[in-house]
């Protein structure tokens, strides 16, 4: 049994995250739900770091646990809702059917996840010449990748062209860059259009949220008609 420290930490954090997610759904006070969801997201950040997606791990904690969930918590503190204990405890036939159907969905997903083989039953191209490097937990950084590469624009341009034109060029080029550099090489060459579109989407979201927040309301009187 070759359990490494990384494996033990995976099981530990996995257990904590599943328990926290269950508590998110079943705890009656919404603020505790929000705080537990922040815990789940931080643990997912740890998993991303374990999977050598360093930038995405940090972005997960910054965006989700540090901003989105803070927003949820602040909104719920302002709402000051009474505890709604009756919400979760109603046992009607509909609730049982819902739980059973979710159980079926869970079974299908878990079964599919457990049965998938190394080559994804032919759908994923894995470099079978060498097993993927085992994930290293928080005690060591990505020691195999040098931290700074050439930034000569001419050299990078050749590689960028090759990545955009040859989708499988990834594997050889990508072994010598850090994760952030790999992400940015692909993001700003092949997916640049979506990236720009995303900024427009964020602008739309900002305008929408501000417009919605300025709606009239208030605790003093109810206005008829706008």
């Amino acid at each position: 049994m070759e359990l490494t420290a990384a494996d033990i930490l995976f099981y530990l954090f996995g257990f904590v995250s599943v328990v926290s997610a269950l508590m998110v759904v079943f705890v009656s006070n919404p603020i505790y739900s929000a705080l537990l969801l922040a815990v789940v997201m931080s643990i997912l950040g740890i998993f991303f770091f374990n999977l050598e997606a360093h930038f995405i791990a940090a972005a997960q904690v910054v965006v989700y646990a540090g901003a989105v969930m803070v927003l949820f918590v602040m909104v719920m503190m302002l709402f000051d809702l009474k505890r709604e204990k009756e919400e979760v405890a109603r046992f009607s036939i509909l609730t049982v059917l819902k739980i059973i159907s979710v159980g079926v969905v869970c079974g299908v997903l878990v079964g599919a996840g457990a049965m998938i083989t190394g080559d994804g039953m032919g759908f994923i191209k894995v470099s079978t010449t060498e097993a993927p490097p085992p994930p290293s937990m928080l005690l060591k950084s990505d020691i195999n990748a040098p931290t700074k590469q050439t930034t000569n624009p001419e050299e990078l341009k050749d590689e960028v062209v090759e990545i955009t034109q040859n989708p499988q060029a990834g594997v050889e080029i990508f072994t010598k860059y850090t994760d952030t550099q790999k992400l940015s090489l692909k993001l700003f060459s092949k997916y640049i259009f979506i990236f720009e579109l995303l900024s427009v989407l964020l602008l739309v979201a900002i305008v929408g949220a501000v417009a919605l927040a300025r709606s009239k309301g208030g605790t003093h009187h109810v206005t008829r008609g706008s």
């Binding site: 930038f55 940090a58 972005a59 910054v62 918590v73 950084s141 952030t180």
Partner: peptide, 27 residues
């Protein structure tokens, strides 16, 4: 303690978690 190659965003990520303590204390 941790020579991360994402050292700077890690610091921002963890610093942004400091808001929870204040919110929890106040509420």
């Amino acid at each position: 303690i941790a020579d991360l190659n994402i050292g700077l965003i890690y610091i921002f990520a963890v610093a942004s978690l400091g808001v929870y303590g204040i919110l929890a204390a106040g509420w």
